[in-house]
């Protein structure tokens, strides 16, 4: 399993796509940083040495937006690089020379998952810290405690691992194209469900409950969006209980229950178990 993990990481690093992603990520961060510099310095209103609350909310909104799109980029990276994690080897015939060897099939699938998880987590962590770093560098007035940042980082990295478990399980059962379609559509459903759930906070009647239910159902299908909301809450809520949580599509006003995180742990384990089980029984 360790050999598969090691060579999965090597493959990702050696592929040109990885270099391209690194360059485009720098481009994204540059544009984001430029946007922050304009937004932070053009509206420098301070009342009695106290930062304007509206400005803090705007800055928290910009921080949330930066993390939201970073999260989206990581998801996009997972889809592009991992849909063929197993199915690609099956379709090219490379799997034949691997699995006649004394290597258990579940070791192969889990080796791939762990290798990809390491790469994705490293990338996701760097991206998260870069966004936070840019906000701090440009003098955000949003309080970003070290504890908040680390707790948020955990959830920021957890989302991609959840998506990756779906992609790897699917890639062990279905073709690369079908896995790609499934991953994109499921991620899209989770994203739109999450946005609708946040919109629900603008309403007070049955509409709010209805929109909230949509969010819960889509979170059960793929809990990436709900994990992002939790990440946002951990980042922007202070120990005092004061919260700079932004409302709107990037915000986290609607929070997942602890039961949801039990479900997420079960979700990852079940998908990996189901994917490996199916792959073990599969004719190659």
């Amino acid at each position: 399993m360790l050999t598969i993990t090691k060579y999965t990481i090597k493959e990702m690093v050696k592929k040109r796509a990885f270099l391209l992603i690194a360059i485009l990520t720098v481009g994204y961060l540059f544009i984001y940083g430029y946007g922050l510099s304009l937004a932070f310095h053009n509206n420098n209103q301070v009342v009695n040495n106290t930062p304007n609350i509206a400005k803090i909310l705007l800055e928290s909104q910009l921080l949330s937006a930066g993390l939201y799109f970073s999260n989206f980029i990581v998801a996009f990276l997972i889809v592009l690089t991992s849909v063929g994690a197993v199915s690609g080897d099956v379709e090219s015939g490379a799997i034949y020379a691997l699995l006649y060897k004394p290597l258990k099939r579940h070791e192969y699938v889990l080796g791939k998952f762990i290798g990809l998880s390491i790469i994705i987590t490293v990338y996701s962590t760097l991206l998260f810290l870069s966004v936070i770093g840019l906000n701090i560098a440009f003098g955000t007035k949003v309080y970003l405690g070290l504890g908040n940042v680390f707790r948020a980082l955990f959830f920021f990295d957890l989302g991609p691992v959840v998506l990756l478990s779906l992609v790897v399980a699917s890639s062990s059962i279905m073709s690369t194209v079908n896995t790609g379609v499934l991953a994109v559509m499921t991620y899209g459903i989770a994203m739109i469900g999450g946005i609708l759930e946040q919109m629900g906070s603008f309403f007070t009647d049955a509409t709010s409950q209805g929109l909230s239910n949509v969010g819960i159902i889509t979170s059960l299908i793929l809990p990436t969006d709900v994990i992002f909301r939790k990440m946002n809450a951990e980042l922007l809520t202070q120990n005092t209980g004061l919260s700079f949580l932004a409302q709107g599509p990037f915000g986290g006003t609607s929070q997942p229950s602890p039961a949801m995180f039990v479900y997420i742990a079960f979700y990852i384990c079940f998908l990996l178990y189901y994917g490996t089980r199916k792959f073990e029984k599969r004719d190659l």
């Binding site: 060579y7 493959e11 015939g93 490379a94 020379a97 006649y100």
Partner: peptide, 14 residues
């Protein structure tokens, strides 16, 4: 599997 070597027909290595 420890006893065998195999050259597949339609293969593609990494």
């Amino acid at each position: 599997k420890r006893q065998i070597g195999f050259l597949p027909e339609n293969f593609k290595y990494h």
